[in-house]
Design a protein around this nucleic acid. Sequence first.
DNA 1: CAAGATACCTCGCCTGTCAAGGTATCTTTT
DNA 2: AAAAGATACCTTGACAGGCGAGGTATCTTG
Lengths: 107, 107
Amino acid sequence: MSIASDLLRGNTDTIILASLAEHDSYGYLINKEIMAKTEAQIELKDATLYSAFRRLEKEGLVTTYWGDEEVGARRRYYSITEKGREVYGQNKAEWQKAKQMIDSLLV
Amino acid sequence: MSIASDLLRGNTDTIILASLAEHDSYGYLINKEIMAKTEAQIELKDATLYSAFRRLEKEGLVTTYWGDEEVGARRRYYSITEKGREVYGQNKAEWQKAKQMIDSLLV
DNA sequence: CAAGATACCTCGCCTGTCAAGGTATCTTTT
DNA sequence: AAAAGATACCTTGACAGGCGAGGTATCTTG
């Protein structure tokens, strides 16, 4: 059984930023990598992913450009911005705190 | 700064069940106890709390009864059911797994 | 007597998730 | 050569949970 999406909510953007913090990437690949790392227990549905991208772009946390594949399907790459890295750091810190607080309530 | 509600979402019901697993309680008190335990970093807004109660009741995870206060504001008490304890256990396990998975993605 | 704490509740908006639908290209199988 | 499956993108509309804003009633304290 995979993780309930409500438990992921609030971390989706952070998870995407984490992926982009390592290297530029594109939707399909980000998803594959997440599934690989979590043994498919976490999967971002593509509608979720693309709405997250739009949000992140709007907030200036990522930039985007089209890949120059001469063969195969086109890819839209995303790149994390300086501001994106800052927010990523803050989000991670908040996640650490949230984890701790929730744990303190669940006996 | 308190915890973003999207990080709590998915744990609200579990947090309430945790509280009721210790002793019967009522809305106002549950909230106070949560705030005390987390130094006010987690706070369930009362609209959130009452909609959660309705949900939990509907699912048969809690039962409710009016307190017999002869003085002061009336209190509606909640009691966790056997099924509630089961679900609580499952939710805790899922939370443990989710934590681990998310951590494995945030480098 | 006013203010604040205790204690309950509803309505309607907002946000994020996602099922369902779509397009286009390439590879593998039949 | 046609079908199936993988790669890769995207939009729309419905749904659920959180919560701001509003309300009621009682008790305590300054």
